[in-house]
Design a binder for these strands. Structure first.
Lengths: 214, 214
DNA sequence: ACAAAAACTAACCAATTGGTCTACTTTTTA
DNA sequence: TAAAAAGTAGACCAATTGGTTAGTTTTTGT
């Protein structure tokens, strides 16, 4: 059995992915400036020059980390239309975002720091794409409002509300851990998700889908 | 009229406060590591050594910035008891936090970055104080739940919900600005506050106080 | 087996950083 | 009014940083 396709820079692909993981974690814990290439190299058990062999500059490495983050952030809400059920769609979106917070906390943190610091390192195209996405989702929310399917409110603020309350569980995990004295378990996340779904859906005057009632 | 008390190192007090302001802003925009003493000195129109004259080390300066932040974060919710009206108390708390986001965005950002990065630079006593505060507030919320004044839910998650959704307007202001194409005005903040109050209070099964209906 | 391509790495470098030292000026105090 | 204290600031330093160079080792296709 040959393994041609596998062998083409297979090792390179693996190393790159190891470096990207180490970098993601390091950037989340220390910020862009607070992370040195040496730290990433150490975390990946590689010499510094090897990291620079795969990623020409620190900025380039950071950019790729950021890109890999944004790839993970697709959700079922992307395809929701005005014909879909608001309660189900919003509940699923909240649950999706909470799942991302649980499984990819470092991604959320790196993104958060980037935005807090002004998003200077985000490519303009990424910002524009996001703007388009938001416009589309707001259109759906407005259609629901017009059809009296959800309460009247500024849809923009509803989106911010969902983003902030779900991402909080990733970004502020250290504070949450400190307050409870232990890490959030999977069960805790389920309870938190159901609480959020209930709070937000009731806030919009919607019934909570059965699957989100604990 | 003499001015004895005023003259004692008056200039020092002023300089220190100017440096602290410049440092707050710089830390918010660039993170701890991303901020150099030189940057702060430039922003304060002082030579670098002058900054180090007032603050022995960068860490010491950062600590003082952090302390000044936490001082600003008192709110009427601190004194709320089980006898108070949940709807009014929670609505006021949300409005207080939104007002802090509006008037002290840099403080919120520096604090957020600190927590996201693990809170390594926060003194243990600060964390303990916060833990005690949270315990006290949770006790009040539990009393409200027991008295059927608000819906049954995990009070901890309600607190996180309020923190995250209000602080979002400070921390993620660059994203919000990008999406709307302009800064949030005071009127926008009022609308956002009222929207949040409505969402969260309805979520808890409470009536929105008249003053928060736009 | 072997040449080319890919992967790796030690040694090195210029720039920036936090911080010190020293000397000077201004302000306060007795 | 003179000494002491507070404030200002240039020159300097060791450590760390991102990045380069130049050469070696390993992998690969033929």
């Amino acid at each position: 059995m040959k393994e041609r396709s596998k062998s083409i820079s297979n090792i390179g692909v693996k190393r790159r992915s190891i470096i990207l993981s180490a970098a993601l974690r390091a950037f989340a814990d220390n910020g862009y400036k607070g992370t040195s290439i040496q730290m990433i190299a150490d975390a990946a058990s590689l010499p510094k020059t090897n990291v620079l062999y795969y990623f020409a500059t620190k900025k380039a490495l950071y950019s790729e980390v950021m890109q890999s983050i944004l790839l993970k952030w697709n959700s079922s809400f992307d395809e929701v239309t005005a014909d879909d059920c608001p309660a189900q769609s919003l509940a699923n979106y909240i649950a999706d975002k909470m799942e991302t917070s649980r499984t990819h906390p470092y991604s959320s943190k790196v993104f958060a720091i980037e935005i807090i610091n002004g998003g200077q390192n985000l490519e303009e195209s990424v910002k524009e794409d996001n703007k388009i996405w938001v416009k589309g989702r707001i259109a759906v929310l407005e259609a629901w409002i017009a059809a009296h399917k959800i309460e009247m409110l500024n849809p923009e603020y509803l989106l911010y509300h969902i983003w902030s309350s779900t991402q909080h569980y990733a970004d502020f995990s250290s504070q949450i851990r400190q307050l409870r004295g232990r890490e959030m378990t999977d069960e805790d996340f389920t309870e938190a998700t159901n609480t959020l779904v209930k709070l937000i859906l009731k806030g919009c005057g919607l019934q909570v889908p059965a699957q989100y009632i604990s």
